[in-house]
C-alpha cells in the first residue's frame, strides 16, 4: 500500500474580487463578485513508504495547498487522497498521530518558554509514554545538535535555531509521514545542510515517508531521488530527478579548458561563460557528441567535461515552458 495515494485531487477557492477605489467599494456593497481559483487541478500520484519526494513549483503553484489537503487542514473540492490508508479530511486521531506538517515560516512552539516545555506539551498532546518520549527527544536533540538551545525561551532564538527546535517539536511523536513545506527557508547554508542531513537520517532510521517542498534545489538534490513538479495546480512531471533534465532540457553544457584561452568558440555553441582559459558552451543535446569531437580535433583542449544543465536551470525552463 502506498503511504500517500492521491487521485484527481482538486481544490477550488472562491475568492472575492473587486476593482480598486471608492466607487468599486460602494458597488461591492450591493453586488459582490467572486472568482473561482483552481489552486490544485486534478492531480494524481502515489508515494511509497519510506520515499523522499521533492514537490517543486513556483509560488502559487499549489504545493502548500496540496500539503494542507494531505495533512487534513483543507477539504478537497474533488478527488481523493489517502495517507497511510486514512482519508486526511476526516482528521482521525490515529491519522494525526502519524503525520506532521512543518512549515518553514511558522512557529508552533510556546514563544515565551524554553522549547523543552513545548516538547513536553506535545508529548501530552500525542499521548506518548514518558520513557519513550525522553529517549526520542534526547536523540532528536542530539541529532540536530540543539542541546544548548532547548533551554532558552523560543523568542530569544535566531531564525535558524528556532527552525531546528521547531523540527524537534514536530517529531517528538515520531510521525511516519512528514510534510515539509520550505523547511530551510531563510536559513544560512550551514543550517540548511544540517537540516538536510537530519531529514535524511530521520528517513533512514524510521523509513518515514517525506514530501518536501523547497525553493532551494540543493535541498532537493541532497534528499530526493524523485520529484513531482506542479505548476498552475497541475502536475508537469513526476519521476526521477535525473530524468527531469533529459526530459525538459534539450541541451547540455560543455566546459572546456584551452591552451589558447583567447580562441573564439561561438561557432560550436552558445558561449555561456568565459573565465581565463575556461569556456562554458551550451549545445543542443543531439549535437553534443559531434561538437565534442570537433572541439577535440580542432582546438588544443587541456580538459573537457560534458554535463546536464544545473537543476535550477531545468526547473526554470520547465516553469517558463509551462507559462507560455
Amino acid at each position: 500500500m502506498a503511504a500517500v495515494d492521491v487521485s484527481e485531487l482538486t481544490k477550488v477557492f472562491r475568492v472575492p474580487e473587486r476593482e480598486a477605489g471608492l466607487r468599486a467599494s460602494m458597488r461591492a456593497l450591493f453586488q459582490r463578485r467572486h472568482r473561482d481559483v483552481r489552486a490544485v487541478d486534478s492531480i494524481s500520484f502515489a508515494i511509497g513508504g519510506g520515499e523522499v519526494v521533492g514537490f517543486l513549483g513556483p509560488n502559487g503553484a499549489g504545493k502548500t495547498t496540496t500539503l494542507k489537503m494531505l495533512s487534513g487542514l483543507l477539504y478537497p473540492t474533488a478527488g481523493e487522497a489517502r495517507v497511510l490508508g486514512f482519508v486526511p479530511s476526516r482528521r482521525e486521531r490515529d491519522f494525526l498521530r502519524q503525520i506532521t506538517l512543518v512549515m518553514g515560516n511558522r512557529n508552533q512552539l510556546q514563544w515565551d518558554l524554553p522549547a523543552l516545555d513545548s516538547f513536553e506539551l506535545n508529548r501530552a498532546i500525542y499521548r506518548v509514554a514518558r520513557e519513550d518520549f525522553r529517549r526520542l527527544r534526547d536523540e532528536l536533540i542530539e541529532l540536530l545538535d540543539v542541546g544548548d538551545l532547548v533551554r532558552k525561551p523560543v523568542r530569544n532564538l535566531s531564525l535558524g535555531e528556532r527552525m531546528k527546535v521547531e523540527i524537534v517539536g514536530s517529531l517528538v511523536h515520531r510521525p511516519q509521514v512528514l510534510f515539509l513545506d520550505e523547511p530551510t527557508i531563510g536559513l544560512d547554508v550551514t543550517m540548511q545542510k544540517r537540516i538536510r542531513s537530519f531529514v535524511a537520517e530521520y528517513n533512514r532510521r524510521y523509513e518515514a515517508t517525506v514530501l518536501l517542498t523547497s525553493h532551494y534545489m540543493a535541498d532537493v538534490e541532497a534528499l530526493c531521488r524523485r520529484v513531482i513538479v506542479i505548476h498552475h495546480g497541475r502536475i508537469l512531471f513526476d519521476g526521477p530527478l535525473t530524468q527531469l533534465g533529459s526530459q525538459f532540457a534539450g541541451y547540455k553544457t560543455i566546459e572546456v579548458a584551452l591552451a589558447n584561452g583567447a580562441a573564439d568558440l561561438s561557432r560550436y555553441g552558445d558561449v555561456l561563460e568565459r573565465d581565463a582559459d575556461r569556456v562554458k558552451l551550451r549545445v543542443e543535446k543531439a549535437d553534443a557528441s559531434r561538437v565534442t569531437a570537433l572541439l577535440l580535433s580542432e582546438q588544443e583542449v587541456i580538459d573537457l567535461t560534458i554535463e546536464d544543465p544545473p537543476i535550477e536551470d531545468v526547473i526554470e525552463l520547465v516553469f517558463a515552458e509551462a507559462s507560455e
Binding site: K68, S71, G72, L73, R91, R93, D94, L96, R97, I99, T100, L101, M103, R106, Q108, I125, Y126, R127
Partner: peptide
Amino acid sequence: EGQFSAALLRPL
C-alpha cells in the same frame, strides 16, 4: 496568523 492550523493538526 495561522495559529489555528497548528491546533487542527493536533490529535485533540
